[in-house]
Design a protein around this nucleic acid. Structure first.
Lengths: 342, 342
DNA sequence: TCCAGATGTGATACCGATACCATACATTGT
DNA sequence: ACAATGTATGGTATCGGTATCACATCTGGA
């Protein structure tokens, strides 16, 4: 690994002159530049950015911490972040927390030591302490997807409540009254907000909230499968529709229903939050977030905070969610249905 | 951001003493240790690993460059790499090349500048130059998934040829003779080897290879969709089975068949390389690779090369592929079939 | 002719942590 | 009593690149 000094020796100049050639700064005679460039080429010299980062106190790296790298929602978001950073000359360090606060803690420690310029954080565990710890070090943070209570921080997220409201209402309008909600831990704000949207729509239709129809597992396929199995066995009478709070729960639920021989939508309707891009045959009616745009705008905000263009604050950017109607919802025959209370 | 000097000043000692406390090296009086530890706690001091890396010429970072981060195959592999590195105290930088040689080149430049300790590379574009360039700098590389011609490098991959042979034979045994192969660019060695396995099985059954049944697109869903649409329109007579060379092509193909109203397996059989973990209802017979193990063993090999336990070489580790039989293959009625030429 | 400014190059110090050597005192053995 | 060793701490140089200041030499205008 040749260093700048090696190049300088070979070209017969001082190291600083090599630096000037590389950075095109200051005055350089044409002949000197030629000599230096030739030495660089011959040695295949590559500058060491560790020393540059040390000098400038700037690494041009930002960390993106997501909760589940196997979920296309997060990888699509990652693409948005990458594309936004590409332009800004920033590099993205992608970290997978697995919704595990301890893993998240470890990553943050390592990344702080590495002098990461900024954090894009999908906070695991819903603990405000993590965010505060980063902020205390003076490192910019933008939170993605979730709200964190009791911290002043910029957030970019989707309209969970609105999307859940729309989906639930979509079911209510088609005659459904017993709607199971298969969700994940309410320590995550999106789970709370999706439940709030569900309850708001039910309330508008004068339908009492039945806690027996609500389950909280984890946002993963196996959990969706188990919740569905359990729900179909224990919910009596059986719900006419299932609302799953994310894409992976939906996939698990569909697998469970298939294994139980319950047909969708003939015997039960299914709607879900999140798009399911890898479904072999997308047929589920969903409230689709815009993960790419989410990543893009969060990254842009973080970069402009890092560069000082914008001050850190407590912005709350909420991106809209789109209802995509497919074939997983059955309209029930009208039997003495209450009108909405509007 | 406090530095070691700040801590030293606060504790009334020299910086080197702080270093000794942190690293538990040399002799420290108990009282001095206490003072230093208190100063560290009060200032919330975090050591700067840039300077450590600069000093030790070791960053404890390895780069993992995969071709498509939205594909669960690669994210599962990534998990294997992460888990292997966790133990070795290594951090993983995940990069997504999108099968794009230029993007790959950029990442490698940045990572070389950042003094990355080693590379786990899924080479895009099949060019040996990339690998050589890294090796020339003395940075260890382990190639994953693909062979690179004309380079001495360690490789960890799956048995593409064997898996394709098994799948094709599975179809042949069930009476299929017109088998379409929907694959991706033969600049990628796995595409060549899967095609070789397909052709080997056909040859054993005395079936002539019909180039009209073979398509080369990209390993993505949209490409699978388009190839299938085109194939169904142009292949005459229509093949009785489709062999897709990876999971995303399979998903695209299934979507296309669904849109064309062609039922699987009643009207056409489908087999595929790679597991499809997010299928709502996994029913395709596949040759499943073991991506987690692939990542794990590649990472372990790289780490032992970095630590000097093993020397870099040209090992070729080939992991077996498992045939998982599901419901996407129909046994054809036996009409004057040639016996295999064994 | 002489000086202001442009042009071209180098020496030194610094970013933050630590290896190496030096120093100083305490303890032990002979 | 004194060397040998153990204990405890600090000064300095170093990793690789670059900002700052210093110092030449050259050019053009008064």
């Amino acid at each position: 690994m040749p260093t700048m000094r090696d190049v300088a020796k070979k070209a017969g100049v001082a190291p600083i002159t090599v630096s000037r050639v590389i950075n095109n700064s200051g005055y350089i005679r044409e002949e000197t530049r030629r000599k230096v460039e030739q030495a660089i080429a011959e040695l295949e010299y590559v500058p060491n950015s560790l020393s540059q980062s040390l000098r400038f106190k700037k690494t041009n790296m930002i960390a993106l911490m997501v909760s589940d790298i196997t979920n296309p929602f997060w990888t699509t978001l990652t693409r948005g972040v990458e594309d936004a950073c590409m332009g800004g000359g920033m590099n993205v360090i992608l970290c997978n927390t697995d919704e595990n606060a301890e893993k998240q803690e470890n990553y943050i420690n390592v990344l702080l030591q590495r002098q990461t310029d900024g954090f894009l954080l999908v906070p695991a565990g819903g603990e405000p302490a993590v965010v505060k710890r980063i902020q205390k070090r003076g490192v910019p943070v933008v939170v993605i997807d979730r709200q964190v209570p009791g911290v002043e921080v910029d957030i970019v997220r989707s309209d969970s409540e609105g999307g859940a409201y729309t989906l639930t209402r979509h079911l209510l309008e088609r005659g459904h009254r017993r709607i199971a909600l298969l969700s994940f831990s309410i320590s995550i704000s999106t789970a709370r907000q999706r439940q709030a949207g569900y309850e708001k729509a039910l309330a508008e239709y004068g339908v009492a909230i039945d806690p027996g129809l609500i389950r909280h597992g984890r946002p993963r396929g196996d959990s969706g499968y188990m919740m569905t199995m359990e729900a179909m066995a224990s919910m009596n009478p059986r719900p006419t529709a299932i609302f799953t709070a994310n894409n992976f729960i939906a996939i698990g639920a569909l697998n469970a229903l298939h294994d139980l021989g319950i047909r969708v939508p003939e015997e039960i309707s299914v709607v879900s939050f999140d798009e399911m891009p890898y479904a072999t045959e997308p047929f589920v009616t969903v409230a689709a977030q815009a993960p790419y745009e989410l990543g893009m705008s969060a990254a842009q905000m973080l970069m402009s905070i890092i560069s000082g263009e914008e001050a850190p604050g407590n912005r709350d950017i909420v991106l809209p969610v789109e209802l995509i109607e497919r074939r997983s919802v059955m309209t029930l025959p009208m039997v003495a249905q209450a009108a909405p209370e509007e």
